[in-house]
């Protein structure tokens, strides 16, 4: 993941965009994460016959190649489906700017290199209006924690853990195993018995039936 993310921004003036809208449940039956971009915002993007809805923002010729969304508040609430992030990334979205994010969505985004940047409402409104007037290209500089556009520069806050993950893109599993396997093993030795006892083979057979 580069330290700087650049792209065209689209106004996405909706609050409470839930992950059911980002990707409907019917597309969760696919067993892989590649290729989900075509189902992104499926019911907002396409009508019942599968034709693009002219009034949906990403179908607007001006924003078809946008890679940054300027949303409202509470983006990505609801279901934990990581498919929502996979669909955004597969479609080509590199960053979402919003007033706030669903917690699980935010965590999923970090793990897939999708930058989620929280900004105040007034700033978002200004950016959306700017993007509506004419093409808006943004650069999100994760290293310096600033967003640059036109001749302006906006500071933002992002938690350090997320920033590091976004910038290094390292596998969290490899990282944990390399640095903390010993401590995990030690922890398991001192767990209280009710917590440490898992499903024994006899009970397992009864439950599985």
């Amino acid at each position: 993941m580069p330290e700087r993310i650049s792209g065209k921004a689209a106004p996405f003036p909706y609050d409470n965009v839930d992950t059911d809208q980002i990707i409907p449940a019917q597309f969760l039956k696919l067993l892989q994460k590649k290729g989900l971009g075509r189902y992104l915002f499926y019911r907002w993007r396409f009508d019942e016959s599968g034709n693009p809805r002219a009034d949906f923002i990403l179908n607007d010729p001006r924003y078809r190649d946008a890679s940054i969304l300027i949303a409202g508040k509470n983006f990505g609430i609801g279901s934990s489906r990581e498919n929502a992030v996979w669909a955004l990334v597969d479609y080509g979205i590199k960053a979402v700017l919003a007033e706030s994010f669903g917690d699980i969505f935010y965590g999923n985004a970090v793990k897939n290199g999708l930058a989620c940047i929280a900004l105040p409402e007034s700033v978002l409104r200004e950016l959306r209006e700017r993007a509506e007037r004419s093409e808006l290209y943004l650069t999100i500089d994760l290293g310096r924690k600033v967003i640059e556009y036109d001749d302006r520069s906006l500071e933002f806050n992002v938690d350090e853990y997320a920033r590091r993950r976004l910038m290094t893109g390292e596998s969290e599993i490899e990282y944990t195993m390399r640095n903390y396997l010993n401590r995990i093993e030690e922890y398991e030795k001192r767990m209280p018995s009710f917590a440490a006892r898992g499903i024994d083979s006899v009970t397992r057979r009864i439950l599985e039936g």
């Binding site: 934990s80 990581e82 699980i104 965590g107 897939n112 969290e172 944990t176 995990i184």
Partner: peptide, 22 residues
């Protein structure tokens, strides 16, 4: 905690989760 699929894999492999205290 409700988690995403990357975290599901992390729990499978390490039995732990990186999580910011709410």
């Amino acid at each position: 905690f409700g988690i995403g699929t990357s975290e599901v894999e992390h729990v499978f492999v390490t039995q732990t989760l990186w999580i910011k205290k709410p």
